[in-house]
C-alpha cells in the first residue's frame, strides 16, 4: 500500500470519527447529565464520564415528575393516530394503486400538498373548529388534527407496497365476485405486512413527537402528552436538570430504537410522497 493510500485511509477514519462525535455527543450528554448529581451540574462542574452509581438517585428524582402519566397520554395519542391513519391510508392507497377514476390527479396533488403545508397554518382554524364541537382540550381532537398529516404518509407507503403486488393475485377473487373491500383486507393487506409495520411506526412516532397542536389544544395538565410536559421544564428551575434529562431520555429511547430498526422504510415512505405526488 502506497503512502498516499494510507494517508487517505487515515483521513477517512478521522472524518468518520469526527462525524460520530458530532452526531453522538448530544445524546451521550443527555445520558451523562441524567446520571449526574445536581451539585456537580450547577457547582463543581459536570463529570464528563457517565456515573452509573447515580442511577438510584435518578430514579428517585424521576418519581417526582409525572412522566408515567405523560407517557400514557402520549401512547393514547400515538396509538389512536396510528389506527386512524392506517385505516384511511390503506383505503386511499388501494384506490390509487388499483383504480383509474376521475379526479385521481387532483387527489394525488392534494395528498402532496399536505406534505408542504406547515401545521401552524391550520392551527387557528382548527382551534376555532374545536371550540365549536367541544373538541378543545380533548385527546380525540388532537388525534383528529394529527391524522391529517400522517394519513398521506401512510397512504404513500402503503400504495408503494401495493403497487409491487401483482394484479393476478387478486384477479381470481374479483372474478369470483368477492367484494373489493374483502380483497383489500383478506388478500392485499396480509401480503404487505412489512410496509404496514413501517407505516405504523411512522404514524405512531409522528403522534409521539407532536408538540405544536398538543401544546395549543390541551390546556388541562392531566391531558398533557410527554412532549408538552417536557417542554414545560423550559424556563423553570425547580426540577433538577438530571431529572429533566432522564425524562427526555425515557421519552427518546422508543423513538431511537424504532427509527433505527426501520430507517430504510421510513426514508422510502417520506421520499415517495414527494416524488410521485
Amino acid at each position: 500500500m502506497s503512502f498516499n493510500k494510507l494517508t487517505l485511509k487515515f483521513l477517512r477514519y478521522l472524518l468518520i470519527g469526527v462525524l460520530v462525535v458530532l452526531a453522538g455527543f448530544p445524546v451521550y450528554w443527555m445520558a451523562a447529565t441524567a446520571l449526574s448529581l445536581n451539585s456537580e451540574l450547577y457547582g463543581t462542574g459536570q463529570v464528563v464520564w457517565p456515573q452509573p452509581q447515580n442511577f438510584p438517585e435518578l430514579m428517585l428524582e424521576l418519581g417526582q415528575v409525572p412522566i408515567g402519566l405523560w407517557l400514557f397520554n402520549t401512547l393514547l395519542i400515538a396509538a389512536g393516530g396510528t389506527v386512524l391513519s392506517l385505516t384511511l391510508g390503506s383505503l386511499a392507497g388501494y384506490a390509487l394503486s388499483r383504480f383509474r377514476f376521475h379526479g385521481k390527479g387532483v387527489v394525488g396533488f392534494l395528498l402532496f400538498m399536505t406534505q408542504v403545508v406547515p401545521e401552524a397554518l391550520i392551527l387557528v382554524p382548527l382551534y376555532a373548529m374545536f371550540i365549536t364541537f367541544g373538541l378543545l382540550n380533548s385527546l380525540t381532537g388532537l388525534v383528529l388534527a394529527n391524522v391529517g398529516f400522517s394519513l398521506p404518509v401512510a397512504c404513500f407507503v402503503l400504495k408503494g407496497a401495493m403497487d409491487a403486488v401483482p394484479y393476478e393475485i387478486e384477479e381470481s377473487a374479483i372474478i369470483d365476485n368477492c367484494p373489493r373491500f374483502s380483497v383489500l383486507t383478506m388478500i392485499i393487506l396480509p401480503l404487505i405486512m412489512p410496509s404496514i409495520a413501517a407505516a405504523a411506526v411512522v404514524a405512531f412516532f409522528a403522534g409521539w413527537n407532536e408538540f405544536l397542536f398538543a401544546s395549543t389544544f390541551l390546556m388541562d395538565r392531566g391531558n398533557w402528552p410527554a412532549s408538552v410536559g417536557l417542554a414545560s421544564f423550559v424556563g423553570q428551575y425547580e426540577t433538577p436538570m438530571s431529572a429533566v434529562m432522564g425524562a427526555a431520555l425515557v421519552f427518546s429511547l422508543p423513538a431511537i430504537v424504532f427509527f433505527l430498526l426501520i430507517q430504510r422504510k421510513i426514508v422510502a415512505g417520506l421520499t415517495a410522497g414527494a416524488v410521485k405526488g
Binding site: 443527555m30 413527537n209 417536557l230 417542554a231 421544564f233 427526555a248 421519552f251
Partner: peptide, 9 residues
C-alpha cells in the same frame, strides 16, 4: 430523537 427532547438537550 424527538424534537422536544432534542430542544431540551
Amino acid at each position: 430523537v424527538p424534537n422536544v427532547a432534542a430542544s431540551l438537550i
